Simulated assay, not measured.
Amino acid sequence: MSRSTRATAKDVARASGVSQTTVSFVLNGAAGHVSEETRERVRQAARDLGYVPNGSAQALRKGASRIVLLNVEGVPTGSGLGSYIKGLDAELAVHQHVLLVLHGHLSSQALSDVAQAVSARAVIDLGDAGRADDIVADAETSLDAFSAQADVPVRYLVDRGHRHLAAVMPDTPELQALAGLRGRLIRQATHAAGLPDCPTLVLPGGLGAAEERLRAFRTDHPDVTAVLAYNDDLALVMLAAMRNMGLRAPGDLAVVGFDDTPHGALFSPALTTVHLDAEAIGRSAARTALGLPAVDTASRPARVIVRESA
């Protein structure tokens, strides 16, 4: 059957039920992380639609470059990302590959276009786990590693007598991929520890609005004695709001952050936080992106950096 318009990668993606990024990589021969079942579904949809890739896509078939793309849209630079990128870049360099880091909001099509333009060997998309599907399983692994081991701070607080914990999450839409995952793992850890349900306090970055949210939360959840914040930045907003309200940490509320950023130690009270081996996570992601076994790149377990706030 003739077509009045040329089929596009978007058409193939819709017909096969995957993202445009996945379509591009499958049809360009750079889909090492995509299951064979998904590859065949994409190829069949392309055949059915009569899809013909453009020139840059055809060039990709001749061999991917030694460039790996990392999209970090929405991931705050103070969240261990610097160490993650250091490890990722160092491991890629060992294997004669170059890391290209992208910032800003990118649609699936835009990310696909960039990948095609540079003939990327792999894409690690930390900006949107929801679109990471088969093609960037290494991104999902990285997000898991950044968010995991929530049981470590939960055990720490339980050992200090806390039974009613809460999670403090940001209200920034760009952070929902990582924040949602971390929040779920915190709730799972509290459940595994036999604690009551873990409520969530969604805290804005502005101090005045944060105080209002915290007041309402304290009224609704008077039993909560400790909170686990999404990251150190949000934990410091929490501590500042508490101070303005006349609350003390850890006497009124114990506060624990994530990521062990340098400024947490400078606050008063100094912030108790969770340290993650982000550099090793980056090295592991690099090897996964290149299809290599994760030899000698396993990250060390998370640990609590004990200071004054909890």
Results as ranks from 00 to 15, higher is better:
1 M>L: 14
6 R>M: 12
6 R>D: 12
9 A>E: 12
14 R>V: 12
14 R>A: 14
15 A>V: 01
19 S>G: 15
20 Q>T: 13
20 Q>P: 04
21 T>N: 14
22 T>F: 03
25 F>W: 12
29 G>K: 04
29 G>E: 08
32 G>S: 13
33 H>P: 00
36 E>D: 15
38 T>I: 12
41 R>H: 09
43 R>T: 01
44 Q>Y: 03
45 A>W: 02
47 R>I: 08
50 G>A: 07
50 G>D: 10
60 L>D: 09
63 G>E: 04
72 V>L: 13
74 G>M: 11
82 G>I: 07
83 S>F: 09
83 S>V: 00
84 Y>Q: 05
84 Y>I: 09
87 G>W: 06
91 E>P: 11
93 A>T: 14
94 V>L: 13
97 H>S: 08
103 H>G: 10
106 L>Q: 13
107 S>V: 02
107 S>A: 06
115 A>C: 08
120 A>Q: 03
120 A>T: 02
121 R>W: 15
130 G>P: 05
130 G>E: 10
131 R>D: 10
135 I>D: 13
144 D>R: 14
154 V>Q: 06
156 Y>D: 09
161 G>K: 09
162 H>Q: 14
164 H>N: 15
169 M>T: 15
170 P>L: 10
173 P>F: 11
175 L>E: 11
176 Q>T: 14
177 A>H: 14
179 A>P: 11
179 A>D: 07
182 R>C: 03
183 G>R: 13
184 R>K: 13
186 I>W: 11
189 A>N: 09
189 A>G: 03
191 H>V: 12
193 A>G: 11
194 G>W: 09
195 L>R: 08
197 D>V: 15
201 L>R: 04
205 G>C: 02
208 G>Y: 14
217 F>I: 10
219 T>C: 09
220 D>Q: 15
221 H>P: 10
222 P>A: 01
223 D>G: 08
223 D>M: 15
224 V>G: 01
224 V>W: 03
224 V>D: 01
225 T>S: 15
225 T>A: 06
226 A>E: 05
231 N>H: 09
234 L>Q: 10
235 A>E: 02
236 L>W: 03
238 M>L: 10
239 L>R: 01
245 M>C: 08
251 G>W: 04
252 D>T: 02
252 D>F: 05
252 D>S: 06
253 L>C: 05
253 L>F: 06
254 A>H: 03
255 V>G: 01
257 G>P: 05
262 P>W: 01
262 P>A: 05
263 H>N: 05
270 A>M: 02
271 L>C: 05
272 T>K: 00
274 V>Y: 00
278 A>W: 02
286 A>Y: 01
293 P>D: 15
294 A>D: 15
298 A>P: 05
302 A>Y: 03
302 A>M: 11
302 A>D: 07
303 R>A: 10
307 R>P: 00
309 S>W: 01
